[in-house]
């Protein structure tokens, strides 16, 4: 089927023909079997187009289900909150009353410093930065800091005390007019609101080249960490660090160390923390000290640079 014929079918289906042209086209359809068959294919497409919303809903429901299945809890949706609360209380009690323990509780968590702009080698085009919008004032859902009901290991507690999903000014984007980037924008919106599952769903709907972009992968890695999927986050961060192309390369090192910690790889976590620059990551030495005092077998040799 030639280009002109297809353009005419599209005009016909989108009601862009005037009555005279329409009648002529319909007469032509009766006489031309090939044109008629092509119109049939287009009609099949319009029929399916009417079901795209249902498919989107189906995928969202599946995503909700997979989230539920990963964390089956006996007390419904508030069960994880209860378990996290119990775990935190338990940890605080342990820290306060264990024999010979310092009275100090876990160090405060801080967000890593934003990376220097010169490190931005992103594949994403320059974006228009807007003033902080109202969504900034929305209170995000807290990330799943502890894998509910599964673990109260000191590493997990330390991770929970230090992990805050990364945000900086580069995430306050408002990109318009470019379809794939609009999706990226939407993913960031979900992410910044703390709707990590929705951010993941939006990520999955992106075009392949954007899904492979290291900046998107960094956001995805943070969302995965917030959803307690540390292993997947770790693999993504390793890829980002090895390629060295993300604008979030510096914070990626910190989060890489945190994933090690969350996975219980204390030695590797210590080594990764020691390699961090303490001027950029003032929380790294604190975490390293906590690691040493809480987990004696940690082979942490020296302070971070």
């Amino acid at each position: 089927m030639n280009e002109q014929a297809m353009a005419r079918i599209e005009r016909y289906l989108l009601d862009q023909m005037d009555p005279v042209e329409r009648q002529a086209f319909e007469r032509e359809l009766k006489a031309d079997a090939e044109l008629s068959a092509e119109l049939g294919r287009y009609r099949k497409a319009t029929e399916l187009a009417g079901k795209l919303g249902a498919q989107e809903l189906r995928e969202r429901l599946r995503a909700l289900d997979s989230g539920d299945d990963r964390n089956p809890l006996p007390y419904g949706r508030y069960g994880w909150m209860l378990l996290v609360l119990v775990a935190i209380c338990g940890l605080l009690a342990w820290l306060a009353y264990r024999p010979g323990a310092p009275t100090k509780v876990l160090p405060e968590s801080r967000i890593p410093a934003p990376p220097a702009p010169t490190q931005d080698t992103s594949a994403l085009p320059e974006t228009e930065l807007l003033p902080r919008d109202s969504s900034k004032t929305q209170k995000p859902e807290k990330p799943h800091k502890l894998k509910s009901g599964k673990s109260t290991r000191p590493e997990s507690e330390l991770f929970a005390a230090h992990f805050v999903p990364y945000t900086d000014h580069t995430m306050e984007l408002n990109l318009r007019g470019r379809s794939s980037l609009e999706v990226y924008d939407r993913m960031l919106q979900h992410y910044r609101k703390g709707a990590y599952r929705e951010a993941m769903i939006t990520y999955d709907s992106m075009e392949l080249n954007l899904r492979q972009n290291d900046n998107c992968l960094f956001v995805r890695a943070n969302a995965l960490m917030a959803l307690s999927r540390y292993d997947e986050a770790h693999k993504l961060l390793e890829g980002i660090l090895s390629r060295g192309q993300s604008r979030y390369l510096v914070p990626a090192r910190w989060y890489h160390a945190l994933t090690r910690l969350a996975m219980g790889q204390t030695q590797q976590a210590s080594q990764a923390l020691m390699q961090l620059d303490s001027t950029q990551f003032p929380q790294a030495p604190q975490l390293l000290r906590s690691l040493r005092s809480h987990i004696p077998k940690t082979a942490a040799g020296s302070e971070p640079k």
Binding site: L14, T46, E47, L48, A49, G50, K51, L52, G53, A54, Q55, E56, R58, E59, S179, S180, E182, V183, D204, S205, M206, E207
Partner: peptide
Amino acid sequence: EKMLLERVFPLLGEQCRELLRLKYE
């Protein structure tokens, strides 16, 4: 049709999906 949608859905860009939904849904 569901199988077809499963395969086609991720290959269609976000903007296309939205426009087609507005028009045909």
